[in-house]
Design a protein around this nucleic acid. Structure first.
Lengths: 270, 270
DNA sequence: ATATGTATTCCAATATAATGGAATTAATAC
DNA sequence: GTATTAATTCCATTATATTGGAATACATAT
């Protein structure tokens, strides 16, 4: 929960294979396309011999896969299956599908389930709105917390000090190059916490407004948010409606958490 | 591609942390519910000190997560995001959604996309049929290849010898305890390959019939199958129709592979 | 309370994994 | 063709990760 000792950056320290392995996986995820072992070595700043060794091991495990004849590799299907297993056990992603569908249908706007991924914000699930003007972001992409409405809610269970040590300094620099004052951010976090809601004109573009409402587990920690991303005029016109609908859905989703998941049994396979 | 040296089972050999780590993940996947470090140690037959150490490392990485106050852990959301990344790069799973929906709608039966996961068969995606009598198996569960219709197609690019060394001996023992003759299995594989199709009354129960058609990548290796699982009377009544529809969809899906994936760009996030 | 069994933490020993660097191979320019 | 650069493989070294086993904490029964 507290900060790492600074001396952890000790130079010339060998890295653990396991950590390096997941650095490789994260690198490929961010890159979103296959890479050669050599590129990976450069990308994660690891010795080449290490990168080659680990890539081969991961290939053998099915965690990485060859993608072409040029030696490029990418994330393997084993990861997909492990991810599926996570989903079946984690109530939230299953339960929220219906809520996202409902939100997208009634508002005709894009609805999202957002969560933290490490110290970043990310869209875990997404249902695009029915209106011709559609807005979407890539599911799974890691985005600085301060850039997003949901970010205010997702860190709101932490103390001010925890938040400041949790969010990388660089993430307060907004896409337009300006810097968000951290005290202002903290104030917004507290307001969001108190309101159980946050919305603002998107920082990333100049035509959308983002609504976000918290999904709680165990009543106090915000494990996810439900969001609506709407064109600004729409958002203004339907503000109260969107706000209330979103909060209502998020509350229902929260109340579902913790209940024993229902699982259907295996009967047949083709 | 060839068999491992037998001496690889060398006793008293330390295991690599990376391999052990993925043993832990696979163990949790199969178990489908959280476990304590101690249970994990027993489950994967590893020294307890090792299991504890690796569990802690994986927790720190977000690859495992605490699930309760009793020290139980389960697969973490990081795996979900890695799995998502795999999906966005892998054309097949994206493309097939529409085909599964079409199959499930026109036949009213359960439609599946099936693949190999290591030396096992597994359901990667599934769309349940509209009819009141619904059949489904758990997505992601690992099942012996010989138990399934798709299994015949998924190994059909290998030689007989390769198949026999690829499929674990024990997997020829069927759920009812009887043993499937491996030569008979090979004959079915060859027939399936020649026909570009395989179907049989399910081995796992006595009321369904399974249809399976191959999805090819690069024209020769069957990377997946499309399947229909239907009640036997339905299957008999609509046999030609189901067969042709399934083969048609699988062909279309095959033809889509290899095309450059279209990806939408990031515009906004809530 | 004590006993019994199980789960977890601690620690020292050594087998070995990560590493740097050299050698080799492939790709590209000239 | 040769020169130049990048990518990959090979190998010896040593820091350290895995391990067995002991110690401790926890749980449950008696």
């Amino acid at each position: 929960m507290s900060a790492e000792p600074v001396s952890d950056i000790a130079i010339n320290r060998r890295m653990r294979g396991l950590d390096r392995a997941f650095e490789i996986l994260d690198f490929l995820r961010q890159r979103r396309k296959p890479a050669r072992p050599n590129e990976i070595a450069i990308g994660i700043d690891a010795p080449k011999s290490t990168a080659y060794e680990l890539v081969n091991l991961l290939l053998k495990l099915g965690v990485l896969e060859h993608t072409d004849e040029d030696g490029r590799v990418f994330l393997g299907r084993k990861l997909y299956f492990l991810g599926l297993a996570w989903q079946t056990q984690f109530d939230l992603t299953r339960e929220c599908k219906a809520h996202l569908a409902y939100l997208a249908e009634t508002t005709r706007e894009t609805a999202q389930l957002c969560m933290l991924d490490g110290c970043k914000y990310t869209v875990a699930m997404l249902k695009e709105g029915a209106r011709p003007f559609r807005i979407s972001s890539d599911v799974g992409e890691a985005i600085p917390i301060p850039w997003t409405a949901s970010g205010r809610l997702l860190v709101s269970h932490m103390s001010d000090a925890e938040i400041l040590s949790f969010v990388p300094k660089a993430d307060f620099i907004l896409p337009d190059g300006s810097t968000l004052d951290s005290q202002e951010f903290l104030a917004q976090v507290r307001a969001a916490r108190a309101d159980g809601f946050f919305s603002f004109d998107s920082i990333a573009d100049n035509f959308t407004h983002c609504f976000s409402a918290p999904v709680y587990q165990d009543a106090d920690v915000c494990v996810a948010t439900l969001c609506l991303v709407a064109p600004r005029d729409d958002a203004a016109k339907n503000y109260e409606n969107y706000r209330n609908t979103l909060i209502q859905e998020a509350r229902e989703l929260s109340s579902k958490l913790g209940e024993t998941p229902v699982r259907f049994s295996t009967v047949a396979y083709g």
